[in-house]
């Protein structure tokens, strides 16, 4: 599609946005970019793809490149947001700032906007909340691999981190989500081992 776009096909880029727009928008939102900034960053992501199209290296999966752009934009966005929050902290009257400071510096709530929340199920909302509570690395690693379907190696390229690090993030993220989510129905033991289910912990 990118090659067709470069060769002047007027419809190619629309197809590209149609194919990849949803994952990019979803990823931006879940990395903590709130509306309406998510829409702005969405546009900026594809603009950058368009501008740098001639230098895209086809040896790399397009999705990796695309998510790298989106992720970097999100990182820059959060940096600016932190500055704004920090400024508001310093604008506060003397004495009040210290108490407000740490909270104001926390990352923004990364959940989707209220309207979209309504459409989500209670389970999904719990998951979104738990996901929002994860540190950036584990959260983005899980989003890329479990939601967007990137391989470990591809996610590592997007996150600009070594593969073992990403693997660790994913492990930590899964464990943290498992701990944060509400109790599921009692687990049934595997059939082959049902009779031993009461055994002591080894």
């Amino acid at each position: 599609m990118l090659a067709r776009h470069l060769s002047g096909d007027r419809h190619a880029f629309a197809e590209l946005v149609s194919a990849y727009g949803r994952p990019v928008h979803r990823f931006l939102q879940r990395t903590g970019v709130r509306p309406p900034a998510d829409d702005d960053l969405f546009q900026e992501t594809f603009l950058r793809v368009h501008r740098a199209a001639g230098r895209y290296d086809p040896a790399y999966p397009f999705r990796v490149w695309l998510f790298t752009i989106a992720r970097r934009l999100a990182v820059s966005h959060h940096r600016r947001e932190r500055l704004r929050r920090w400024l508001s902290f310093w604008r506060a009257p003397a004495g009040q700032g210290e108490a407000d400071g740490p909270a104001a510096l926390d990352p923004p709530d990364p959940g989707p906007d209220p309207e979209r929340r309504l459409a989500a199920s209670e389970a999904t909302r719990s998951l979104e909340r738990a996901l929002a509570g994860l540190p950036e690395g584990p959260r983005q690693a899980l989003l890329l691999t479990r939601v967007e379907g990137l391989s470990l190696e591809e996610a590592a390229r997007v996150l600009e981190a070594p593969v073992p690090t990403v693997k660790t993030w994913i492990r930590r993220g899964r464990l943290a989500l498992a701990a944060a989510l509400p109790e599921a129905a009692p687990a049934s033991p595997p059939p082959a081992a049902a009779s031993d289910a009461r055994g002591a912990e080894p």
Binding site: L127, L143, V147, E148, P186, A187, E201
Partner: peptide, 25 residues
């Protein structure tokens, strides 16, 4: 897992986590 209820419960939860994450798509 057959012998350890705690780990078995975690295994179930982790599978649930992955399924829920896939649902976010």
């Amino acid at each position: 897992l057959a012998a350890c209820p705690a780990c078995r419960a975690l295994a179930e939860k982790l599978r649930g986590v992955d399924a829920a994450l896939a649902g976010l798509a």
